[in-house]
Design a protein around this nucleic acid. Structure first.
Lengths: 158, 158
DNA sequence: CTTATTTGTTAGTGGAGCATACAATCCTGC
DNA sequence: GCAGGATTGTATGCTCCACTAACAAATAAG
């Protein structure tokens, strides 16, 4: 990847051995969160290339499986998505035959969401892939570090 | 937000006091990374609403300021973006008069990137906003925890 | 010199987040 | 019980980001 390259030219000074330096940016917590998320996202996408499922889709399948009959607004709230975004996720999963909408018996405004048989199959496969993905992620940490990381991350999003 | 709501209906059992439960999903590290990133992204977007700058744009401005004459490919490599994505970022920043491209003196394939005066102004404002954003992020941690978090995150994206 | 690689560019695809607007349903205050 | 407000789902449209594929120009490698 051309390490040791000349980084400043066109009249600037030469700065060798500047490998991947990002200066003060390295001290920004938000920046590291974004990079870690990006790395995670890319590995996830690779892992789920065959299944053709995104993080959001898997999360939604998982959540509906855990809570059959859950409403769209609840799915959105728990996964931190707004109504419009949740719609597109559910639409896709429904179009692929993984999920179905039923009129809620207790609240006419709500849709009750359920997995189809194909949805259960897809989720089972997805959980296998998640295991591989998580193994990749956790391979660089001790269990204690994993616990610490999750606790710290939870404080950000709770 | 209707906590204590009935979550399972349409024939299912009632599950009260299920506030925000996401079941096993809660044990997935990648899930917490995504949620933390989302929370971070939303706060960043709010903080930068007036400046109309995105995380990527600020990172790129910052990096070019630190390394005047850096090439697009280097920006992309260091910020973990591919060439095409880097293009769109630089295009936007150039269109807004924050950045300019010069032909590299040492490698005819490369563009040397520089901030304009307006770009320096924008970055100065952005750094102010970053301070507020980082303060929000760090407010829930001790300095030691911040260090730990950054170290753990770095292991993911390095 | 010929070939392969690197860099920038363009064009197109898809996911995700958000805002707005609207209709149906539910809930509250009177 | 009724009117007004809130909630939920839906539709539309916008922006941003990541990626692919293809191409041209320049450099590097054989």
């Amino acid at each position: 990847m051309a390490f040791g390259d000349q980084l400043v030219d066109a009249g600037g000074k030469i700065a060798p051995d500047d490998d991947g330096d990002i200066g003060e940016l390295n001290e920004i917590v938000g920046f590291h969160i974004r990079l870690a998320h990006g790395a995670c996202y890319r590995h996830f996408t690779e892992t789920f290339a065959e299944l053709e499922l995104t993080q959001k889709q898997v999360s939604a399948l998982w959540l509906v499986d855990d809570h059959p009959g859950i409403s769209q607004i609840e799915v959105g709230t728990r996964l931190r998505m707004d109504r419009a975004t949740t719609m597109t996720i559910v639409n896709r999963l429904q179009a692929r035959g993984f999920m179905r909408r039923e009129k809620s018996a207790t609240d006419g405004r709500k849709q009750a969401l359920f997995l189809t048989d194909r949805g259960h199959d897809a989720l089972a496969q997805a959980k296998e892939a998640i295991r591989a993905h998580e193994a990749w992620l956790k391979s660089r940490f001790t269990q204690k570090e994993v616990d610490t990381l999750m606790e710290l991350l939870a404080r950000i999003h709770e």
